[in-house]
Design a binder for these strands. Structure first.
Length: 286
DNA sequence: GACAATGGGGCTACATCTGA
DNA sequence: TCAGATGTAGCCCCATTGTC
């Protein structure tokens, strides 16, 4: 069994079809079909259920998927470790939710870069749920996410307790004004979005519209235009570029959320990873 | 029309053989 | 011993077919 076969296998799993995998890998469809067939012959089991539109995993396929992800992760780690031993620096992929990427990461990443100039550092942003999934799939080495993560494979510690505040063009004088509002939020899976919904249900407000965005600047631009409201850490309002926003406090019971630093318990502690962990530990986020 | 499977043929890497 | 020739296996692409 070759790693190239496992890559093709995982691509079919990810895209849900042979043609999708072929497009993703820049192969022709027949090549992917043949490689999957070879893998099935080698293992003596069917890995996929063929459908008229795409393929889905059999129970044996699901077992292989788990091992294939681990094997390819180990191969990547081995490559990183060898690069480090050759003093090539290796690489580190850091995941983060948008706000942490905008507020805290520039400080950490610039420090890390100064101390580890030969490490190829990548930053991947998304919602907390998306980033946690990527940590579990070993697609990022470590990450900053909102809230506490309850998963046995995740190592975590609190880096900061954020105070969340309401960003609205005209602050509410009473909660009655918040009926039929528009929420300006990140995609489903964002910890702040969940907190905002929690805040509304706290006051029994269930009628609202939702507008989703992918970037912090866009959300705040829409708040400024009077399109709706959002909740974000107070640290955002303290940034010079956002200092003109008038923010409103939330009830204390629901205004705090932890930002956690997480990594997979099986993550290989390469020099780059150790160095980043040490930096996060000694950084004062307040 | 979209998608998977199959057959045929080209290309490349590797092992083995052969002759100088 | 070494360089070139030959055979084989594996991977890939193209064209085509079958299924839904």
């Amino acid at each position: 069994m070759e790693t190239s076969s496992l890559r093709i296998f995982l691509s079919v799993v990810e895209t849900g079809s042979v043609s999708g995998a072929a497009k993703q890998l820049n192969y022709v469809q027949s090549n992917v079909t043949a490689r999957i067939r070879q893998l099935e012959e080698e293992l003596g089991v069917a890995l996929f259920i063929r459908k008229s539109r795409g393929m889905s995993l059999t129970s044996e396929g699901r077992v292989l998927k788990e091992y294939a992800e681990k094997i390819l992760y180990l191969v990547r780690q081995a490559s990183k470790a060898v690069n480090e031993s050759l003093d090539l620096g290796g690489e580190l992929i850091v995941g983060s939710m948008e706000t942490a990427a905008a507020i805290y990461l520039p400080i950490i990443l610039s420090k890390f870069h100064k101390e580890n100039a030969n490490v190829n550092l990548s930053l991947l942003t998304g919602t907390s749920e998306e980033i946690i999934l990527k940590v579990l799939e070993h697609k990022v080495d470590c990450a900053f996410v909102g809230g506490k993560v309850n998963h046995p494979d995740i190592m975590q510690y609190k880096v900061i307790e954020e105070e969340l505040v309401l960003f609205n063009k005209k602050p509410f004088s009473s909660i009655e004004e918040s009926k039929n509002i528009t929420l300006l939020v990140f995609r489903e899976g964002c910890a702040y979005r969940a907190h905002l919904k929690h805040w509304l249900s706290y006051y029994g407000i269930r009628q609202y519209k939702i507008m989703e965005f992918g970037a912090l600047d866009t959300i705040l631009g829409c708040v400024e235009a009077g399109m709706g409201l959002t909740i974000l850490p107070r640290a955002v309002a303290e940034r010079p570029q956002y200092a003109h926003f008038k923010v409103q406090n939330l009830p204390k019971e629901i205004s705090y959320i932890n930002t956690s630093f997480i990594y997979h318990k099986d993550t290989a502690l390469t020099n780059a990873m150790k160095s980043f962990l040490a930096l996060v530990e000694k950084t004062n986020f307040f």
